[in-house]
C-alpha cells in the first residue's frame, strides 16, 4: 500500500505566513458553495407551512402555524406512493437481472481466457460505448412487437442490457485481483466449475456484488428517460414520471403546494442518501477508480 499525500496534509507549504488568511477565505468559499448545493432542498420549507393567501401576502415571513394541508394536497396530486412501488419493482428487477449476469460473464472473462471468450469480451466491451439513444427507435418497435413495451419487465430488461457491459468489466477486474490458487485448490478438492464459482469465488466477490447492487439500484431509481419512452400506462408510472407529470400539470402557480410536492418527491432519495451516504460514496469511488 502506497502512503498517499492525503494521509499527511497538515504539513505546511511554503506560504506559511499567509496560510491562515488563505485557509479562512477558501473555507468560506467552500462552505458557501456547499450551502448553494443544499439551498434548493432546504428553501421549500420556508413556504410549505403557509396557505396560498399567506404566501401571496408575505412570501418570506415566518408561518403563523404549522399547517400540513399543503402536504396532503401535494401527496394527492403527485400520487407518489404508487410511483414509489413501481420504481421499487423496477429497481429490484434491474438488480436481479444485471448483477448475476454481469458476475457470471465477468468471472468467465477473468478466469477462462481463450479465443472464444476473448471474442465475447470485445463484443461486450463494445456494448459499453453504445448510448441507449442510438438504438431507441428500433428498441421501442421491437419491444412493442414482443409485447414488452409498457410493462415493468420491459423497462428493467433494457436497463439490464445497458448496465451489463460496465458491471461485467468491474467483475472481471475484481475476479482477476483474487488469487487464482483459490480456484485451483477448489478444483483439486473435486469441485466442478459451477461449484467453484458459487461456493468459492462468488462469496469472495461480495464487495463487488454489494457495490453493483447499490449502484444499479440507484441508477434505475433515478431513471427518467427510459421510463418516459417505455411506460405510457398511468398505473405503471414510476416515481420520476409522477413527478414530471405534476411538474407539467400544476406548475409553480401555487407555491406552497409546489414546495410540499418538491419535499415529498425529494425525501425518499435524500433519506436514502443520509442513511447510506458512506456506502454510496465508497461505492461510487470504487466504481470510478476501477472503471
Amino acid at each position: 500500500m502506497v502512503e498517499t499525500a492525503a494521509g499527511r496534509r497538515n504539513t505546511y507549504f511554503a506560504e506559511i505566513r499567509h496560510y491562515k488568511t488563505q485557509k479562512f477565505i477558501i473555507t468560506t468559499i467552500l462552505v458557501l458553495l456547499a450551502l448553494a448545493v443544499i439551498a434548493p432542498l432546504v428553501l421549500p420549507f420556508c413556504f410549505v407551512f403557509k396557505t396560498q393567501l399567506e404566501y401571496a401576502y408575505d412570501p418570506w415571513g415566518l408561518p403563523k402555524q404549522l399547517r400540513l394541508l399543503n402536504f396532503r394536497e401535494a401527496w394527492a396530486a403527485v400520487n407518489i406512493l404508487h410511483g414509489l412501488i413501481n420504481t421499487f419493482l423496477v429497481c429490484l428487477g434491474a438488480v436481479a437481472c444485471t448483477v448475476p449476469t454481469a458476475a457470471m460473464a465477468g468471472y468467465i472473462f477473468a478466469r477462462y481466457q481463450n479465443k472464444f471468450t476473448e471474442i465475447v469480451f470485445y463484443m461486450i466491451l463494445a456494448g459499453w460505448f453504445v448510448p441507449v439513444q442510438m438504438v431507441l427507435i428500433p428498441l421501442y418497435r421491437f419491444t412493442s412487437q414482443i409485447g414488452l413495451s409498457n410493462t415493468l419487465p420491459g423497462l428493467f430488461l433494457i436497463m439490464c442490457a445497458f448496465g451489463v457491459p460496465f458491471w461485467s468489466m468491474i467483475y472481471r477486474s475484481f475476479f482477476r485481483s483474487l488469487p487464482g490458487e483459490l480456484a485451483e485448490a477448489a478444483r483439486i478438492d473435486g469441485a466442478g466449475h459451477a461449484t467453484t464459482f458459487f461456493r468459492v469465488m462468488l462469496p469472495l466477490a461480495n464487495p463487488a456484488t454489494a457495490l453493483a447492487v447499490l449502484l444499479v439500484f440507484i441508477g434505475s431509481w433515478s431513471d427518467y428517460f427510459l421510463s418516459l419512452i417505455f411506460i405510457s400506462d398511468q398505473n405503471l408510472f414510476t416515481m420520476q414520471l409522477r413527478v414530471a407529470q405534476f411538474l407539467n400539470q400544476y406548475g409553480v402557480d401555487r407555491m406552497p403546494r409546489y414546495a410540499a410536492a418538491a419535499i415529498i418527491a425529494a425525501a425518499p432519495t435524500v433519506l436514502l442518501y443520509i442513511i447510506g451516504h458512506r456506502w454510496i460514496l465508497q461505492g461510487t469511488l470504487a466504481g470510478a477508480l476501477k472503471g
Binding site: 433515478s222 431513471d223 427518467y224 420520476q240 414520471l241 413527478v243 405534476f246 411538474l247 425529494a266 432519495t269
Partner: peptide
C-alpha cells in the same frame, strides 16, 4: 437526486 426532481 433524480433528474425529474432536479428539474422540479
Amino acid at each position: 437526486i433524480p433528474s425529474a426532481i432536479v428539474a422540479m
